[in-house]
């Protein structure tokens, strides 16, 4: 029952994220989406996933919130009717997931531990991804530096 409630909350907050006009409110709704996803993972037994989701969510939201504050004007109050209608749309959209089913659980790698999966099965991926992230961050730093140099 609790998983169903969290899932409905997830769809509702996703709806609010997209349909609320002001960026700051949108980011606040995205906070709800991230927190509920982390809770869903934790309650399903995927504790590592929950911790990663939470940590990444906090970082992303802090930056997004600052950007939203910086780039948009002071947000007006949201009309109550609009908020209620968005919650109703979210609840309506979550109905298919409660009553329909398209898959059965696949336990192909059921005995694989997290450490084994990350460092033995996907070790190459981890290293390559580290390289990609490093390249992207260096690229952004150079890009911003060149831009600043061009302005001076």
């Amino acid at each position: 029952m609790i998983l169903e409630l969290i899932s409905i909350g997830l769809v509702i907050s996703a709806c609010l994220t997209i349909f609320l006009d002001e960026a700051v409110y949108s980011v606040l709704a995205l906070t709800g989406t991230f927190l509920l996803t982390a809770l869903l993972y934790a309650l399903s037994g995927a504790l590592f996933a929950a911790i990663f989701q939470f940590a990444m969510g906090v970082g992303t939201l802090a930056i997004l919130f600052l950007s939203g504050e910086m780039l948009s004007k002071k947000p007006p109050k949201i009309p109550k009717e609009r908020l209620l209608s968005l919650v109703a749309v979210g609840a309506l959209l979550s109905l298919p997931m409660l009553f329909l089913s398209v898959s059965s659980p696949m336990n192909v790698f059921s005995d694989v531990q997290f450490e084994e999966a990350l460092w033995r099965l996907r070790a190459g991926d981890v290293l390559l991804q580290g390289l990609v992230v490093l390249t992207v961050s260096v690229g952004i730093a150079i890009f911003l530096h060149e831009k600043k140099k061009g302005e001076e």
Partner: peptide
């Protein structure tokens, strides 16, 4: 999809997060 407690799904999630964060940084810049 890999059943929640499974390590492989969580490992894929960590890899996806790394890419997601890099994309996020690029878009914000």
């Amino acid at each position: 999809l890999t059943s929640a407690g499974n390590g492989l799904g969580q490992a894929f999630l960590v890899l996806a997060f790394a890419t997601d964060t890099a994309v996020g940084a690029l878009v914000l810049a």
